[in-house]
């Protein structure tokens, strides 16, 4: 680990000022990803601006029935919060499916959104990786890629975004608020992760030096009947190989509202809008769910060793939506 300066931020503007004054500054939240990457030399900041004590950890209802979650709220506090569990149970489940109890106590909501991929080639500082060293190549395409992306990847990078939380947030149209020296601003979560293309090292659309201050969930009555299902290679404490966040509201046998997002299949949390459109107003049956999932996955471009993710995601989506439909009818 390279030597670095460390400052505790005093207020958001103070944090931005400290960050802006150093060439290679990083905001330090829970540190669960950043400190690890610093140990392996993948992140080499000159300054850490510790934002853990900023008053950004509140979780509160918005006037319109939504929820605003502060950027430094821990994953644990967010998952345990009664309003999160009541209004967006899939978000609580996604948070609880992530990492371990210890890591969830440390990790923050803002940091969770900005965590880096766990691709084994990205994590090995001694080898090539277009994300880490632009232009050095992507060894995963010819190498070990059984848990890499099938959607939205490119010939330059097939890594997935590792967050569980972000999948649920994507399903619920979360909006990310941030602040720069120019003042506060926001963008939909859907715009936070730019297309990979030939710039896999550009991982967010945030302006340079921006500090995420909160994530807002707009009101979504459908979310009260929502679920997150995660498939992984051990029963706990592992990244997903496929996950689904879904919410479903059925009226008179037809789909009144539906939300569907996929995790561990793309460089970003993957909102399944094609599937949602296919389902809207149609019957809430397993056949319809399967057809919708197939429509979404028609765009999949799997590699030889991750072809299984196509049927996996299809069956997961059908399984979770069917459960929700059955519970709604019960």
């Amino acid at each position: 680990m390279k030597e670095f300066d460390y400052r505790r931020a005093d207020g958001v503007s103070g944090a931005l000022a400290l960050h802006g004054a150093a060439p290679e500054a990083r905001f330090l939240g829970g540190g669960t990803n950043l400190v690890d990457l610093m140990k392996t030399g993948i992140e080499r900041p000159s300054l850490l601006v510790d934002i853990r004590e900023l008053p950004l950890d509140g979780i509160e209802a918005t006037g319109d029935g939504g929820l605003r979650i502060g950027a430094t709220a821990t994953n644990s506090d967010t998952a345990a919060h009664p309003e999160v569990r009541r209004r967006y149970p899939a978000l609580a489940q996604a948070l609880l499916a992530g990492a371990s109890g210890q890591l969830r106590n440390m990790a923050t909501v803002g940091g969770n959104l900005l965590q880096r991929t766990r691709c084994g080639y990205f994590s090995d500082a001694t080898g090539p990786c277009n994300k880490r060293v632009p232009g050095s190549g992507c060894p995963a395409i010819e190498g070990e890629h059984h848990n890499h992306a099938i959607l939205g990847a490119s010939a330059h990078c097939v890594a997935t975004h590792p967050s569980d939380m972000a999948v649920a947030l994507a399903a619920f149209d979360a909006v990310v608020a941030y602040e720069t020296a120019d003042g506060p601003d926001e963008m939909p979560l859907a715009d936070l992760y730019p297309p990979v293309g030939d710039t896999p090292h550009v991982e967010t659309a945030l302006p340079a030096g921006a500090l995420i201050t909160s994530v807002t969930l707009p009101p979504a009555p459908v979310a009260a009947a929502s679920r997150y299902r995660k498939v992984r290679e051990r029963a706990s404490f592992a990244f997903a190989i496929g996950s689904v966040a879904a919410a479903l509201e059925v009226r008179d046998g037809t789909v009144h509202d539906v939300r569907l997002a996929f995790g561990a299949v793309a460089p970003r949390p993957w909102r399944a809008q094609t599937a949602e459109k296919a389902l809207a107003g149609g019957p809430a049956t397993a056949e319809a769910f399967a057809a919708a999932a197939d429509a979404e996955l028609a765009a999949a471009e799997p590699l030889p060793d991750n072809e299984y993710k196509v049927p996996l995601m299809r069956d997961l989506a059908v399984s979770v939506l069917t459960e929700l439909a059955e519970e709604a009818g019960a």
């Binding site: 084994g120 090995d124 029963a235 592992a238 990244f239």
Partner: peptide, 19 residues
């Protein structure tokens, strides 16, 4: 990895033991 000759994900997140 055939290309590098090294283990990919040589850590306890990449190499799973039962939890």
């Amino acid at each position: 990895d055939r290309a590098s000759g090294a283990v990919v994900g040589g850590d306890l997140a990449g190499y799973h033991v039962a939890a």
